[in-house]
Design a protein around this nucleic acid. Structure first.
Length: 360
RNA sequence: GCGCCCUUCGUCUAUCGGUUAGGACGACAGCCUUUCACGUUGUAAAGACGGGUUCGACUCCCGUAGGGCGCGCCA
């Protein structure tokens, strides 16, 4: 019997739902649908400084607007900190991790020296085999993974293919901070395992993390989920998508009047293809989507093509549905609230009558 | 600096060793139209570079260049 597919979308709530994150969520959602599985939502809020409830709401709101849904309640990573710490301490007991008493200042100094010498900036393992009884007074230790030194770590990626690292390139990462809270690297592995995630589909900026996380899985004695690192979305100039490119969050696309169906269609074709087909209904893409046809190179965002698709979806839209979409959008667009207030039933009727011409 | 990844028209992409290298957006030129839009017809436009392997490379291998990502007690 094959285990059912479980994917997940795991944003960190430090801003709004990034357009790239929206596509990642879409791919996870489609993959789960295609295989009759589930998509889970996990909020990665372990960075207490930067995580805000506003951002959590914005992400959930953005996903809903995009028409994406998830199974069960969202999991909040911070709430699971005790479990993460327990795994880290268990790893120490088993000899797969150790306490490191190096201070942040000491490590910064170490990195600066390595950089000056033109050496790779990796933790040098100074506490890996040192007797803890020689620990300095008053320093709270972190827990580091005792990563393998020899051999190699391989990620059998569904998009990138087989990717190999020499273990000597990967240093002993921190699992548990000195204040007892988990790092991202540990939390992700423990949560994905506990949540029964079978497929990790995320941006390829996480590819190296995939290797490091594989090492944690191995230390824990757990199976590594299937991984798929999808290419990133770049701005029209080929540089990483940033504020200066304009619309970063999906809510900005709503405010510009794009239809969710058009944005989904645009996003799914960024990196994925099915022969020459350009237009996919949501139903269709959830039947056709696969990892095999996801490309490996970054795609540039093209507003002209998005607009073209949006026009196409508008012209095809049912008049009532388009009016509903308009009213739905009004509160989010500048000056829209006034328009919405002035829109009575008579106005609505008039708008509906004009819609066939308007949408052309 | 070290590691990993990527490279087909301006852009998104098809091609799974043999094709006139296909489609879409955009551009340009017609047609339609009181205008704009829609629609429609057509045109231009691509395998980064250099070596191999092969009867034959966009496709496989190596190198170079360019780009991206990672190298935090951030996620």
């Amino acid at each position: 019997m094959q285990t059912p597919v479980v994917t997940r979308f795991a944003p960190s709530p430090t801003g709004f739902l990034h357009i790239g994150g929206g596509r990642t969520a879409l791919f996870n959602w489609l993959y789960a649908k295609r295989h009759g599985g589930k998509m889970l939502l996990r909020i990665e809020d372990t960075d207490r400084e930067r995580s805000t409830t506003n951002a959590i709401e914005a992400i959930i709101d953005g996903l809903k607007w995009l028409g994406l849904s998830w199974d069960g309640e969202p999991i909040y990573q911070f709430a699971r900190a005790a479990r993460h710490a327990e795994v880290a301490r268990d790893l120490v007991v088993k000899g797969h991790a150790y306490y490191c008493y190096a201070t942040p200042e000491e490590l910064t100094e170490m990195r600066e020296r390595l950089k000056a010498d033109g050496k790779p900036m990796r933790y040098d393992g100074r506490w890996r085999d040192r007797d803890p009884s020689t620990a300095p007074e008053g320093v709270k230790p972190v827990i580091r993974l005792r990563a393998p030194i020899e051999g190699e770590t391989v990620v059998e990626d569904q998009v990138q293919g087989k990717v190999t690292w020499a273990n000597k390139e990967l240093d002993d990462l921190v699992l548990l901070r000195s204040d007892g809270t988990p790092t991202y690297m540990l939390a992700v592995v423990v949560d994905d395992h506990d949540m029964g995630v079978t497929h990790i589909i995320r941006g390829d900026d996480h590819l190296t993390n995939g290797a490091r996380q594989s090492q944690i899985y191995q230390a824990c004695g757990w199976n590594v989920p299937v991984m798929a690192h999808i290419p990133l979305i770049h701005g029209p100039d080929g540089a990483k998508l940033s504020k200066r490119h304009g619309a970063l969050g999906v809510e900005a696309y709503r405010a510009m009047g794009y239809l969710p169906a058009a944005l989904r269609n645009y996003l799914v074709r960024l990196g994925w293809s099915h022969g020459d087909q350009e237009i996919f209904s949501t139903e269709e893409m959830s039947q056709l989507f696969d990892l095999k046809n996801v490309g490996r190179s970054a795609a540039r965002f093209d507003f002209a093509k998005l607009s073209n698709l949006n026009g196409l979806y508008m012209r095809q839209a049912d008049d009532e549905a388009l009016l509903a979409a308009l009213e739905d959008m009004l509160p989010h667009v500048e000056g829209g609230a006034d328009f919405a207030r002035a829109l009575d039933n008579a106005g609505r009727k008039r708008l509906l009558a004009m819609m066939p011409g308007l949408k052309e």
